[in-house]
């Protein structure tokens, strides 16, 4: 059952009619949104065309080094996004580095695992499989990691007195920060747990919808989606644990002290 229907640009243009209607509505109702709407729409069009061209180029080049380079850049962008989403973050390079490195390591482990053992394209690093897979894993893991870090930093700052009171009674730093660590880990895991619970009932995942639209049997698309979700779950676990532990290591020291001067508040 292969019945892929190709779109031409007229189809795409026709679909944008509703967006123009929104713009007109904004002018009539004086919502002042038309400018933002126009900019966002243009950005979307340009970005998607560019990424389409880039992917086409990468697939044709089929170079392992280019693929690796793009994957590194993606992890970098994810690290930057995690950095931006925290109200309080580690000062200096650490604020970006912990997010970027944990995303790269956690994302790479599960992506390589999925490519080599389950999907098995030839070659295993084939950009047509590796990059979309890595992108989906990063995009979903990022939310958990940034939430985990943000919660950790906010909780530790707020509970500073309670943590120090325990240190003053001779407890170890590990005992004293354990409650904050648990709150942070729980909040990092929440998005993936919620996503798994709602999937298929509230939301149809984009990848599965895409595969169905391109003519794939839904039960085949489900298998792919499950694989992806398991990989994302794995990467979230690794990423959230890695980032929260790394940040805790940075925020404490061997003399059982809190080092909150290493946190800065986002402007």
């Amino acid at each position: 059952m292969n019945s892929y229907i190709a779109l031409d640009y007229t189809d795409v243009l026709l679909a944008s009619v509703f967006l123009f209607l929104n713009g007109a509505l904004s002018i009539v109702l004086r919502l002042g949104l038309e400018r933002q709407l126009a900019i966002a729409a243009v950005r979307m069009v340009v970005q998607l065309f560019m990424v389409g061209l880039l992917l086409k180029f990468l697939f044709e080049a089929a170079s392992p080094w280019l693929t690796l380079g793009v994957a590194l850049a993606m992890a970098g962008f994810a690290g930057r996004e995690i950095w931006a989403r925290q109200e309080r973050r580690l000062a200096g390079f650490w604020g970006f580095g912990i997010g970027a490195v944990t995303m790269l390591v956690a994302g790479a482990i599960v992506t390589v695992y999925g490519l080599v053992l389950q999907i098995q394209p030839d070659p295993w690093w084939s950009p047509r499989f590796a990059l979309p897979l890595f992108g989906m894993v990063l995009g979903n893991t990022m939310t958990g990691v940034s939430l985990g870090l943000d919660t950790l930093h906010t909780t530790i700052s707020r509970e500073r007195r309670a943590i120090e009171a325990q240190l003053l009674l001779g407890r170890t730093i590990r005992e004293a920060v354990a409650p904050a660590m648990r709150v942070a880990l729980r909040s990092g895991f929440t998005p993936i747990v919620n996503a798994m619970a709602a999937i298929g009932v509230v939301s149809l995942p984009g990848m599965m919808t895409g595969q169905i639209l391109s003519g794939l049997d839904p039960s085949e698309a489900v298998k792919y989606q499950l694989l992806i979700m398991f990989l994302i779950g794995g990467a979230t676990g690794l990423g959230v644990l890695g980032a929260v532990f790394a940040s805790l290591w940075r925020l404490t020291d061997e003399r059982h002290r809190l080092r909150l001067e290493r946190l800065v508040t986002a402007p």
């Binding site: 509970e159 007195r161 309670a162 943590i163 120090e164 009171a165 003053l168 409650p179």
Partner: peptide, 9 residues
């Protein structure tokens, strides 16, 4: 050390 304002966990 007993601080002027201590914490409660």
């Amino acid at each position: 050390y007993v601080p002027a304002e201590t914490g409660w966990w």
